[in-house]
């Protein structure tokens, strides 16, 4: 076996072991590398900044435990910016686990102690609604016809915030963060095309390319591009969190992937040369 063949046949366990080591080192001693913010996240940030005080945002938590490491930090950063700017939030979930992501996000944001926000006046969580696009159309169409209670079963009719919100026209903007392609497209279909609302979209990085045409055509005013977008938002809002820590880990893991790609290709090319020689 030539040295090139040996290089292309490292056992799976060795490759996986190297990946784990590449994650552990920067997590234990972060590098604190500078970040360059992408235009899509900058646009998300600028859109929220431009909203007048008191504007109501409909925010969809469209992910569960699988998406939380990537999208949770971005949601936290987005909520910090929203509460800092005295905007109002109506939160819903199109994901089955969304109602369990909500307390995790709120535990990190702490709107009451950090911003003096009051539940029912400044933000309300209406919980999970099944049906994806049907749920979106329902909330944007006639919210009170569909939803009578919040996620804990309290009537929303007496809440000051909800008394002023009846449907799409009362939302200044619709924002979503999701791991689901159906949800990512669905909000554009329902909020933008059906109800003519501005939309901000957050997805896993691997979905960003497929929703990019919506951003180019103005159907999405900004995109939170997975963990990269989350790190950008943490940086822009001045609330560093897990996404910025993740950026350091990404440096190691992705450099390792680049090394794997280089080793694999050089070895493959050299083997081909040896074979033809």
């Amino acid at each position: 076996m030539s040295v090139w063949e040996k290089l292309t046949s490292l056992p799976r366990e060795v490759v996986m072991g190297l990946v784990i080591i590449a994650m552990l080192i920067p997590a234990l001693s972060p590098l604190g590398l500078p970040l360059m913010t992408g235009q899509m996240s900058q646009d998300w940030y600028d859109t929220i900044e431009a909203l007048p005080e008191g504007s109501v945002i409909l925010f969809d938590i469209g992910y569960g435990s699988g998406g939380y490491p990537s999208l949770g930090p971005g949601t936290i950063a987005a909520f910090h910016q929203i509460f800092e700017n005295d905007l109002k939030l109506v939160i819903m979930a199109t994901a089955l686990e969304g109602t369990l992501m909500y307390p995790l996000v709120m535990a990190a944001v702490q709107p009451e102690s950090n911003y003096g926000a009051v539940y029912g006046e400044d933000y309300v969580f209406i919980g999970y609604i099944a049906g994806t696009q049907t749920a979106m159309a329902g909330v944007l169409g006639d919210l009170h016809e569909l939803v009578t209670n919040d996620y804990q079963g309290n009537p929303i009719s007496g809440m000051p915030l909800m008394d002023n919100v009846g449907g799409a026209d009362d939302f200044a903007i619709v924002a979503y963060v999701t791991t689901s392609g159906d949800v990512a497209e669905g909000w554009v279909y329902q909020a933008y095309s059906q109800y003519n609302r501005d939309v901000l979209g957050g997805t896993l990085s691997m979905m960003t390319t497929s929703i990019k045409p919506y951003y180019d055509s103005g159907q999405l005013l900004g995109i939170m591009d997975g963990v990269k977008g989350a790190a950008d938002l943490e940086f822009l809002t001045g609330h560093p969190g897990d996404a910025i820590v993740s950026s350091d880990i990404l440096t190691f893991t992705q450099t390792l992937v680049l090394i794997f790609i280089a080793v694999g290709n050089i070895s493959w090319f050299m083997q081909k040369q040896e074979g033809s020689g």
Partner: peptide
């Protein structure tokens, strides 16, 4: 290709959450 590059970041971005939890 761009999509693939971003997918790698996406998957690592998710697993890193578990590493941070463990440590």
């Amino acid at each position: 290709g761009a999509s693939f590059g971003n997918t790698i970041m996406s998957r690592f971005g998710m697993y890193q959450g578990r590493i941070i939890f463990l440590l």
